[in-house]
């Protein structure tokens, strides 16, 4: 495949990486094509954030969070899962490929898994080619995300 590096928006729950090395890698050594958006819990992720990432030029979106019972806020991830998974199938319904949205629910023993998942996802996006299904928007002003 080409050496095109797809842009990825990576929403990370603050509590989901148990190994300090993983968190350190995500915080400091993330490749340039991956944009990190840290949230206190996956429950904070409004589907609108995901849509904004997509319209802002992200070719794929990764959401990492905790398994049930492991949520720091007890049930934020349960609420998030119902909403975000339905959102991903809704996006698929209007023609945006579901494969461009990936959920990574991490457990205690998943040391090093986030690196593998991101690499695998990047690979998958390269196979899919560039995303042009939805129109890109202008960078938002007034506190919105800038390019």
């Amino acid at each position: 495949m080409t050496d095109h590096k797809p842009k990825i928006a990576f929403f990370q729950c603050h509590w989901c990486l148990y190994a300090p090395e993983d968190q350190e890698w995500v915080d400091r050594r993330l490749p340039d094509n991956i944009r990190l958006i840290k949230v206190p819990c996956t429950g904070r992720i409004d589907p609108l954030f995901v849509l904004n990432a997509v319209q802002g030029g992200a070719e794929g979106v990764v959401i990492s969070g905790c398994l049930p019972e492991k949520c720091h806020y007890k049930e934020g991830n349960l609420a998030a899962r119902r909403q975000l998974q339905e959102f991903s199938s809704f996006m698929d319904y209007i023609g945006y490929d579901e494969a461009r949205l990936r959920f990574v629910w991490l457990d205690l023993q998943d040391r090093g898994r986030i690196q593998r998942e991101l690499a695998d996802f990047e690979n998958q996006l390269q196979q899919l080619g560039s995303a042009e299904a939805l129109a890109a928007r202008q960078p938002l002003e007034e506190g919105g995300a800038h390019e």
Binding site: L51, N52, F90, A136, R137, L140, E142, G143, G144
Partner: peptide, 27 residues
Amino acid sequence: NTPRWTESGTTPAGTHAWHIIRAFHQT
């Protein structure tokens, strides 16, 4: 408008976002 979540004009991106999120809020 602080922050502004979507484009408020009739640009393609703005109308897409309105139709997607309006419908999704009805789930």
